[in-house]
């Protein structure tokens, strides 16, 4: 009988993971680009197609990342939930402040609607990105 140590069944350090992080980062890029195009036009909004398309791309990428995460296999879901909830609270404070400034400064309705869609996907995307980045290296419980 071999006395060599048995290889571990699962290691979070070597486990293959779907590219949730990269997809979330690209989504973040789309969010930021959309916000730049939108903010550059305030208060006169002549071109809304590009920001709307970019916001849509961001939402699609976020949902794709979330769908990939659902099929991730053994995963530290407890750590994921803990980090995601706390990160979501942080992002809500940050986004809430920005949204407050937009409303307070009478940002036009169409721009405010797109900003709000961006702010919501921003909060969710960042929470997913950071919680995944932490939980992927933790032992599944």
């Amino acid at each position: 009988m071999s006395t060599a140590p048995q290889p571990s069944a699962f290691s979070p350090y070597t486990a293959k993971r779907p590219p949730v992080g990269i997809v979330c980062q690209v989504a973040l890029g789309a969010i930021v680009l959309s916000a730049i195009v939108l903010a550059a036009q305030i208060p006169r909004l002549s071109e809304l197609t590009v920001p709307i398309v970019l916001a849509g791309v961001a939402w699609v990428l976020f949902l794709a990342a979330a769908a990939m995460l659902v099929r991730v296999g053994p995963f530290a879901w407890g750590v994921f939930r803990m980090v995601a909830v706390r990160q979501l609270l942080v992002e809500l404070v940050i986004s809430g402040m920005l949204e407050f400034v937009f409303i307070y400064d009478h940002t036009p309705g169409s721009a405010l609607a797109i900003f709000t869609a961006l702010v919501v996907v921003f909060c969710l995307d960042i929470a997913l990105l950071i919680a995944f980045s932490v939980a992927r290296y933790q032992e599944p419980v």
Binding site: G21, C24, Q25, L28, G29, V32, V79, V83, I126, L129, I130, F132, S133, V134, R136, Y137, Q138
Partner: peptide
């Protein structure tokens, strides 16, 4: 994008 998308996830993963 650099701070929130690249550095903050790494920072928290290192701390954990």
């Amino acid at each position: 994008v650099v701070a929130i998308g690249i550095l903050e996830p790494a920072n928290l993963a290192v701390l954990f």
